[in-house]
């Protein structure tokens, strides 16, 4: 009994005496928990339907990168971005971007479909990599994006309402859709 009390007292003393400067590491990431909702083929089928697909890779030049970053108000980490073009009777009828945006701890992979005149047609979550916060895959959230263009803010608390419990993921998704719209504008896709 006394031994236990002594040990408890020692622990308390240690706790109270810990008011010293101590080096700390970056906060630990939670468990990687990959949830695949759509494969690349399924996502493209969902957004592009039966259009004839062609994949191109966009490698931004230094000047393009600078302009993109200024428009996005953040760094562009990717050195190349794949773009899918859906052709109908030889003409581009739809564009799709598969993007990876940092969620709370791990990236969220999702697809954004755009019309040639730069209007969002569809957004769908493909892969979510955390246990919590996957509320952004709900239609209630994703249905806010179709119809958005470069003229819209596409920003949480401006014209997008976040999902409770998935705040950071909602921000990431909104930022990702904005990125797709900016890429469409920058590349002059028609």
């Amino acid at each position: 009994m006394w031994k236990k009390l002594n040990r408890l007292g020692l622990c308390l003393l240690l706790a109270l005496g810990s008011g010293e400067i101590a080096p700390v590491q970056a906060a630990e990431k939670p468990e990687f928990y990959e949830q695949i909702y759509l494969s690349e083929a399924e996502a493209l089928k969902l957004v592009m339907g039966d259009l004839n697909l062609k994949k191109t890779i966009f490698k931004p030049t230094a000047a393009q990168r600078k302009r993109l970053q200024q428009k996005m108000r953040r760094k562009l980490p990717e050195s190349e971005i794949p773009i899918w073009v859906g052709f109908k009777q030889g003409k581009p009828a739809r564009y799709a971007f598969i993007l990876h945006e940092d969620g709370k701890h791990y990236p969220i992979t999702f697809i954004v479909g755009l019309t040639p005149d730069g209007k969002v047609t569809q957004v769908a979550v493909m892969v979510y990599r955390e246990k919590r916060g996957d509320g952004v895959k709900r239609a209630r959230f994703l249905n806010q994006f179709p119809g958005k263009t470069r003229r819209d803010d596409v920003e949480v608390n401006a014209d997008i309402i976040h999902i409770t419990g998935s705040t950071i993921s909602s921000w990431s998704m909104a930022a990702g859709v904005r990125k797709a719209l900016i890429l469409h504008e920058e590349l002059g896709l028609k």
Binding site: V24, Q25, A26, A27, Q69, Q70, M72, R73, R74, K75, K104, T167, I168
Partner: peptide
């Protein structure tokens, strides 16, 4: 509740400091 953000060009381009030793959220 979100974290720490940094810009080195007067506020045009921002980046988050992911090195924080705690999670505000």
């Amino acid at each position: 509740d979100a974290g720490l953000f940094f810009s080195d060009d007067g506020g045009e381009i921002w980046e988050e400091d992911f090195s924080l030793p705690f999670e505000p959220i």
